[in-house]
Structure formats: structure tokens, C-alpha cells
Nucleic acid binder design. Structure first.
Lengths: 341, 341
DNA sequence: TATTAGCACTCCGCACAGGGGAGTGCTAAG
DNA sequence: CTTAGCACTCCCCTGTGCGGAGTGCTAATA
């Protein structure tokens, strides 16, 4: 099943290209014309019938042309597609990325850029803070019973939060505590800071037990803190431009799904171990997305996995362009994040 | 033009209610039935013709029923609509609001709640940090040439950022600087911290000139900083459920517009001075939103204006429900934000 | 003068039929 | 194995006709 002869491959590719191009079932004649093979439409028809038998193409009705199946697209992306982003797209993306000054917003910038360039929807996770390295902690006394804890990571991220302490604290003690914790946690990834690690310190400074415990909980459950593991999405309205989603009742479930953050995280998560990952139509775990294809790629920060970015579009997607673009952008982003902060 | 006799008002109201209910042009017979007035359809027809003359109703074609115009809706919301949220909706909203723990995410929670309850799209600005009061600043030395500045506001918001300093600094000097700036700026709203204010301090500590200037720029242009003046939107997919947006080509421009943050800010900005503000169809400045109605209301934090929230739906909107809901929620949010932090 | 019954008229929406066209699958010949 | 020829299928478009909803007008009524 996996070894199609060259001509079948060529024909499948041609059908897919034609269908991607104008969203209409393609007939044998178009293919015969398009492929500069010296074969007649009848031959093409035979081959197409075979491809249908194999599950790569399908038939809306008797006298219609062929349409690729998810299976066909899968074969296509696995073995047939290969393309680099054009120089034009590269510079366009570069310019987009260069524009962003505030590093906290890089994920949004990337999402916008992807959406504009591809004309599909784009999804980007912000660099995951759990992977960043702890660098510094400082307790700042606010009132006699209120303390602000501020954490700085190696990527320059600053996060803070207020804590209540039961006993009045003198500033000197807080400074000592700050220094102690800072030294102890130096170099750990945020995700690695566990209860045990803090427990050690509690021994040395019993009276601060409560604040340390609360801080730990903050560090770990900080889950929804601004600009955190948030997922940014942009260009969802682009989906409505696709003819397969011209009927709102088809598009509605898709857009609804894309409003749910867990769904988006799921989409990107599968890409984590790989270079680029494509999920096509029925391969989706989430039912409402069965009409779409997602192309996703992870990016790094200082060599460590930091997040992922992707594209959501119709299964009839410009795979060549999108895959190379996503790969390229993930690479660029990794570079930028590794150099700058 | 503004003094419609009572019967015309009743009829207009009935037409609008019927049309809101099932999105189809409404005829004289339906109204005659609905209104328990002892009048015949013919009389209703005469009245409706008059209302059309006055610009409150219109006619898709000769033999169709009547449809409200934007003008008709305007009159309706200005003088005819009045409704309080049902007890059921109140508790439902309360529960939603109670669920949120992290205060940084209140805007998102509210957006979600509004979208779920109304089944339209919702827009919420996060509490604007410019309005919060400066409470504390602390410089934290990272390396000999890198310093983190952390600001704490009265609302408990903590924001930080790294600065490069040209000359190596000793910690004692930084602490003194922290204390000095903290004292000086105490009680100012973030937006009130101007160049002049910092300039004073520069005299007293000439060598820190650069860091103060940079900090000022940070404070003022912090514009796109996480969880900032950001606008959250949710439930955009709900718009596709409305029959008037069943054609994707109608919905696409609307959803595209709602992806642009400036547009959303504009929508909410008009509400700022008022209690609730309704923008109907053609009243919109932004062309792509001419088919929609926006209901928006501002909310306060500790008595000071902090942000706004709103609903975007079709002009054929459940005005009674939505207006009261938005008003109610803005009030609740003000309370919550004023009590808790 | 306001209301109403009656009625002609308009126009939408739908069902139906028929023709053209695109594209297939089969068969038989090269 | 390829291909020309051909019958066949089914979509889609167009035109037609009809029922129904709803209007606007007119004339009669309270």
C-alpha cells in the first residue's frame, strides 16, 4: 500500500495540487492536460480509480471529479511534499519579527505574522516559564504583614505576587531570607522547584515556613498567570474565507473549538517531540476539528523546549507553503529567543 | 418625531420583540394577535405604514412583513426597554465570578461568563494599570550592570523589568535610590508619573539619571505589557449562530474586525463616561460592524474608572436581557475589584 | 374621523421538469 | 497496457407555475 508506482504518485500529487488550488473536484482531463505525460484521460481515469480503491481519492458522486481523502493528504505530506519558503516570505516574516520590541509579546507577534502570511488561523504558545531558569528572588516588605515576592528568570522574565505573613517581619530578616532562597534555587528550572527543595530551607528558617510554602504553591499553580503558558490565536476569521467553511454551520463548531484554550494546547502538544507535525482531518482527537488540518512545530529557548506554534486551516491546505513556513518560523523564533534576552 | 402615540409605541415594541424572537419579518396579523388590543390587522397595517414613514420600520419587499430599522431599535432602547436580569442569571453570573481565584484573570473570566450567558460575543478590557496607584518601587541588582525594577501598585499588581546601567552600582546606592523613588512617587496614579516628577529626583541623584529616564519611558510606554490594557474577547463563534450571519461572507468582516485590538478598544471607549452605552448598526464608526450592536459599560476599581466590558451581537439583539446584564455585571465587577485586593 | 372588511395585487419560495455539461466506467480495438 | 468511443449518471442551471403571506387601497361602517 505504501509503494505507489511513480505515475500514480504523480497523478495523486497533481490531483491534490489542482484541488488545493481551486477547491473543486478534479477530472481526468484536467490532470492529463496538466501532467505533461503522454497519456490520455482514459489512462488517468484508470489510475484514479485505482487510487480511489487504495483510499487516496474519493468521489462526491458518480459523474464528479476526484477529491483527495485525508489518507491521500497524509501520503502527500509524508512523501511528496517538499518546499522551502520563498525569499519573499522569508523577508516578510523577518520584518514582522524584527518589529516586536517588547519580548513579552513575541508570541502574539508571531501569531499575527503567521496569520497574515498564510491566510489561515495561527496558534502560538508563549514561551513556557516553567522551563526558564530561576535566577533571583527578592522579598519586598510592603506593610508589616504584607510581603511581595519577585522572581527573575534567566530569560529576563519578572513575576511578582503579594503574600500575607502572620507575624510582623523586620526587613533584615527578609533580606537574609531573600539571599538564602536565591542562592539555594539558583539555576533550577522553575518546574524543578519542588516541595522538597523548599523543605530543606524551612529547617534553616523555621519561622518563614508559611511564606515559603505559599510561595511554592504560587510557583507551581501559577498556571494561569498573565503572559504565561497562554496560547495566542489569530486569524480565525480567515477560516471563513475558505469555501469549505462558507456555510456558518460548518464553521461554527471549528471556531468554537478554537476558542477553548485546552483544545489549542492539545493541538500544539503533539508537535513537541518532533520537528514539524501535521494532523489531518479525521486524525484529530477533537471531533469538531475533523474538517481541518493543523501544522505545528516546537521552538526552543536556549536549547530547551519552550513552546510551539502552528497553523489551522482546511484539510485542503497549501501544505508545501505552510509546512516550510512553520518549520522556518519555529527555527527563527528559537534563534531570536536564544540570542536576545 | 419623538412623540409617538402610545399605540404606535406598543406596535413598534411588539414588532421588535417578534422580530428579535424569530428573525423573520413580522406581519400585521401576528401583531394583532399578539397585542391584546381590540384592533384589526388592517388598523395595525395603517400604523405600521406610519411607523415606516417615520423611519422606524422597513420593508424587505412589497409583500413581506416589517423589520425594525436601526432607528427603530434606537428608539426602542432609549425609551421602551427596561428589564432587570432574572434571579437565575444573577446567580449564574455570581457563580462564574466567584470561581476565578487569580485576580490577574478576572477580565478573562468575565468575558467567558458574558459570552456563555448571552450567547453573543463579549469584550472586556483588563483593569487599566495606569489608573492604579503607585505604591512601591524596588531596584534589584542582578549583575553589576543589570538591574531589575519592580513596581507594586495599590491593587497588588506587580510588574517588573530589567534595565542595563552603564556604571557598576553598589547595592547600597540602589537601596537608597529605591527608597527615595518610592517615597516620592507614593500615591500617584501610574499615569500621573511624568517626566517632571522624575526630573526632580534626578537632581538629588544625578548619577542615576539614565536609569530613571529609562524607567519613566517604561512606565509610560509599557503599553503592550502582559495583562495590561489588553482587551479580551470571547464567544466570537457565537455570532455564527445568528441567522443573519449564516453566510460566512457576511460574518467574515465582522469577525476580522473583532480580531483587531484597536477596534475593540474603540468599541468600549465610548462607554466610559456613561452607565451603559448602546451602539446600533449604522451608528458604528467602523464600517464592518454596521450589522452589529454593541452594548458596553464601564467599571470602577476603588471608585476610579478601570475598564469596560461589553457585548457584540446582531442588531436584532435581546436588548432587554443584554443591557440589564451588562449593567449588572459592570456593577458587580466594580464591587469585587474594590473589595478584594 | 378612526376603524375595519374586502379584495386585488405583489413578490417570495418552492417544486418540478427539462436540457446541457462534466466526468465517469465499460468495452473493444490497437 | 493504452486508448478511442460511447452510454450513462448525476449535478446544476433555467424556466415555469402555483400557493401563500402580506400589503395597500377602497369603500362601508360606528
Amino acid at each position: 500500500m505504501l509503494d505507489l508506482d511513480t505515475r500514480k504518485q504523480e497523478i495523486l500529487k497533481a490531483v491534490i495540487h489542482a484541488y488545493i488550488h481551486d477547491a473543486e473536484p478534479v477530472g481526468s482531463e484536467r490532470i492529463a492536460h496538466r501532467l505533461r505525460l503522454h497519456v490520455s484521460p482514459a489512462t488517468i481515469r484508470n489510475e484514479m480509480a485505482a487510487l480511489e480503491e487504495l483510499g487516496f481519492l474519493s468521489h462526491p458522486h458518480t459523474s464528479a471529479g476526484r477529491v483527495p481523502t485525508d489518507h491521500g493528504y497524509r501520503f502527500y505530506v509524508d512523501t511528496l511534499v517538499q518546499q522551502e519558503p520563498s525569499a519573499q516570505e522569508r523577508t516578510r516574516l523577518r520584518r514582522f519579527l524584527a518589529g516586536g520590541d517588547e519580548p513579552g509579546h513575541i508570541a502574539e507577534e508571531v501569531a499575527r505574522a503567521l496569520a497574515v502570511v498564510t491566510e489561515y488561523a495561527s496558534v502560538v504558545t508563549a514561551p513556557a516559564p516553567e522551563r526558564q531558569l530561576f535566577q533571583h528572588l527578592r522579598f519586598i516588605p510592603l506593610t508589616s504583614t504584607k510581603v511581595i515576592a519577585v522572581i527573575v528568570t534567566d530569560a529576563g522574565m519578572v513575576q511578582g505576587r503579594a503574600f500575607d505573613v502572620q507575624d510582623p517581619l523586620e526587613p533584615g530578616a527578609l533580606d537574609r531570607l531573600s539571599r538564602m532562597v536565591s542562592q539555594r534555587l539558583q539555576g533550577y528550572a522553575l518546574a524543578e522547584i519542588t516541595e522538597d527543595l523548599l523543605a530543606e530551607m524551612v529547617d534553616q528558617a523555621a519561622w518563614q515556613h508559611r511564606i515559603l510554602v505559599e510561595m511554592l504553591r504560587w510557583l507551581r499553580h501559577r498556571a494561569p498567570v498573565p503572559a504565561d503558558r497562554r496560547v495566542y490565536i489569530d486569524g480565525t476569521a480567515n477560516i471563513l474565507k475558505q469555501p469549505e467553511f462558507h456555510d456558518a454551520r460548518t464553521a461554527q463548531p471549528v471556531l468554537s473549538a478554537l476558542e477553548r484554550e485546552e483544545v489549542l494546547s492539545d493541538l500544539l502538544e503533539v508537535a513537541l517531540g518532533r520537528q514539524v507535525w501535521v494532523t489531518i482531518g479525521s486524525e484529530h482527537r477533537h471531533e469538531d476539528l475533523r474538517g481541518t488540518t493543523v501544522v505545528a512545530a516546537p521552538y526552543q529557548m536556549g536549547g530547551r523546549p519552550a513552546g510551539a506554534l502552528g497553523i489551522v486551516g482546511p484539510t485542503r491546505m497549501k501544505y508545501g507553503k505552510v509546512i516550510s513556513l512553520v518549520r522556518y518560523l519555529a527555527g527563527s523564533l528559537s534563534e531570536i529567543l536564544t540570542e536576545s534576552p
